[in-house]
Computed example of a mutant assay.
Amino acid sequence: MIVSSHPFPLSNPLDVQPPGIRWAELRQDVLNTLVRNAPGEEPRMLDLSAMLTRPAILRRLAATLAERLPPATERLVAPSAAGVTLVAAVALESGLPFCLLTPADGVFGDLFPGEPVVLVTAVTATGSAVSATASALISRGARVLTVLTALDTNLGAAERLGAQGLDYIACIRTEEV
């Protein structure tokens, strides 16, 4: 069993697989979501809905992201309603609570001043939306430990978030697929 520093130990069948095998299977799952226009044609884009609606992919993705959570994490945050599927899966995997940041209503769920949180997102590109969400969390008193993304499209998010002083962890980068 993988030893977790979180209060809720991981305990699912994926735990018995070595991390290298889990990573290889996740990478292959992501490769299988590449959209092609014709047989033999170069892939054009990832099918995000396939990554977030297929249980086998979502489960591997959640397990991989949960392994990368900083030990001090007390809450996960979804930056929008579109991110609820992924953050809920990571919450179930890690045993951590989560909340949703909404543009209209603010916070759906609990968020306490000084609470160490991790912002979980499916895909980052330039990082502008994630950066704005992190700023909103900080203005609400949260302590953003890191931004954790499933897929970095390599369009500047790491640089933007780094300039903001935020730790940034990408599970998969487009150059890896």
Rank of each mutant, 00 (worst) to 15 (best):
P13Q: 12
A150C: 07
A170C: 08
A132M: 01
R143T: 13
M51G: 03
G109A: 11
L101N: 06
A56C: 01
V177S: 01
D47E: 14
A24Y: 00
P70R: 06
D15K: 05
L76S: 07
A104T: 10
A157G: 12
D105A: 13
P43V: 04
E175C: 12
F8T: 15
L26N: 00
T174R: 09
E93M: 06
L145H: 10
G109E: 05
G95C: 12
V3K: 12
T174C: 10
V87D: 01
V107T: 08
I138W: 01
F8S: 08
L76N: 08
V107H: 01
R54E: 14
A38L: 04
G127C: 12
R140N: 13
T53K: 11
S139W: 04
F8L: 15
M45V: 14
V130G: 06
G40W: 10
R36I: 08
G127Q: 10
S4R: 04
A134R: 04
T102C: 02
R54L: 11
V120C: 07
I138L: 04
T133I: 09
L65F: 01
L69C: 03
D47K: 00
I2P: 11
S5M: 11
T64F: 05
A62T: 11
E176P: 00
T133E: 13
V118C: 03
G114K: 07
A72H: 09
F112G: 11
A91M: 05
V84N: 10
V117C: 04
P103Q: 14
E115L: 02
L52S: 05
T149A: 11
S5I: 05
V118Q: 05
A78R: 02
M51A: 08
A158G: 15
T174Y: 09
R68W: 00
N37Y: 14
A150H: 10
V107M: 02
D152W: 00
S11N: 13
A91P: 02
E25V: 08
P116T: 07
E74H: 12
G106M: 15
I57V: 09
T53P: 00
Q17L: 15
P18N: 12
V35F: 05
L31T: 01
E25Q: 12
L119P: 09
V16I: 14
G83N: 05
Y168D: 06
N37M: 14
A50Q: 06
R60H: 11
A50R: 13
D110Y: 09
A91T: 09
V3W: 05
V87S: 04
L161P: 09
L145N: 09
L119K: 04
V117K: 06
V118W: 01
A134N: 14
E42K: 13
S5G: 13
P79N: 14
I57D: 06
A158T: 15
V130P: 01
G141C: 03
M51Y: 02
P116E: 10
A81T: 12
P71Y: 09
H6K: 09
V90R: 02
E74M: 03
P9S: 04
S5E: 13
G165Y: 11
A62G: 08
F108N: 08
A91S: 15
P97Y: 13
I172Q: 03
V87L: 05
E25A: 07
P113Y: 06
D110S: 06
Q164W: 03
L101Y: 00
P79V: 11
C171R: 01
A81N: 12
R140I: 10
E176Q: 10
M45P: 00
